[in-house]
């Protein structure tokens, strides 16, 4: 019993990471119909920048804010220089290659400067584990699924109630019509990438007190988040959060009852199977092409 609860809680933490990153991919996809293979590295960047700044003696709050801000700027730059010029036609693949390249640059630059030793961010929520149904967990870990769900609802309010959010939805639905409303869709895409990168960095920061920040923490996690987003059908916020959390829980159960080695092989096989069964993603909308 305790074991199951333990896997469930740890899985939700892991799933929270996937869900938050997949939400970022969803935001970017909506605004530009392109995703971003650097997203996992932005998540890593958020964590290690916060760790480095804290180590330099900056107050936690300041380093966290700075880290998120830096990530947002990086996200905006990536949109402007590596996505927009390579996403000019409906089936463009250029952005895949350029963002993969930038992702590798960030990771290898981080390895060279930060080193390959993991370091943790201090947090009062990660000092004493809480006992829950025979399982032990840090409060910090519970923050992730909570943050994912909160971000989802926050996005919903943002998209429905604010001027910028409405503009983003308009751009997502119909770029041309959005332009005719006076909305600058390039600017909206830029902001969307910055927002997504900010959320990505925050995700890295939230997990850094529990999981040591490492330059290699991003790449695979980013790919999994991408898989989660696509399997969910990237155009549904609720979908990516549900699939993200479920994927994390599933991984922990596979780790627990089978082996750590089987985790990724099984997980990615399920991704493939899910896409075969739901070619538009589980929560996705079919796009009907008119002849």
């Amino acid at each position: 019993m305790g074991e199951i609860v333990q896997y469930l809680l740890n899985g939700l933490t892991l799933g929270g990471i996937y869900a938050l990153l997949a939400l970022g991919l969803y935001i970017m996809w909506e605004a530009s119909k392109a995703a971003n293979f650097t997203h996992g590295d932005i998540y890593m960047l958020g964590a290690i920048v916060a760790v480095v700044l804290t180590e330099r003696g900056l107050p936690l709050f300041v380093s966290v804010t700075a880290s998120v801000a830096i990530a947002a700027v990086v996200g905006a730059l990536i949109e402007r220089f590596f996505v927009r010029p390579f996403n000019t036609e409906p089936h463009s693949i250029g952005w895949m290659l350029t963002t993969i390249a930038v992702g590798m640059m960030i990771e290898s630059a981080a390895t060279q400067t930060y080193g390959s030793l993991g370091r943790q961010l201090p947090s009062i929520l990660a000092e004493k584990p809480i006992r829950l149904g025979g399982a032990g967990v840090y409060a910090q870990e519970l923050l992730l699924p909570i943050a994912a769900v909160a971000t989802m609802f926050g996005l919903q309010v943002f998209y429905r109630r604010t001027r910028l959010g409405r503009a983003m939805r308009a751009v997502a639905a119909d770029r041309m019509a959005a332009g005719l409303m006076g909305i600058d869709s390039n600017l909206v895409a830029l902001i969307a990438f910055a927002l997504a990168a900010g959320i990505g960095a925050l995700t890295g920061i939230l997990i850094a007190p529990v999981l040591p920040a490492l330059p290699t923490m991003g790449a695979l996690t980013g790919l999994k988040a991408f898989g989660v987003a696509i399997v969910a059908g990237i155009s549904s916020a609720r979908g990516v959060v549900i699939v993200g959390l479920a994927y994390g829980v599933m991984e922990k159960f596979i780790e627990g009852y089978l082996s750590t080695g089987a985790r990724d092989a099984l997980g990615f096989s399920l991704v493939i199977l899910a896409l075969l069964a739901f070619p538009q993603g589980i929560f996705g909308r079919g796009e009907v092409k008119k002849v």
């Binding site: 895949m96 696509i230 896409l275």
Partner: peptide, 19 residues
């Protein structure tokens, strides 16, 4: 499926194989 969806399938296949 094509485009990004197909890319994910091939990436996933590659990672499964590696594992």
């Amino acid at each position: 499926v094509r485009g990004a969806y197909f890319a994910v399938i091939t990436i996933a296949f590659g990672l499964v194989f590696e594992n």
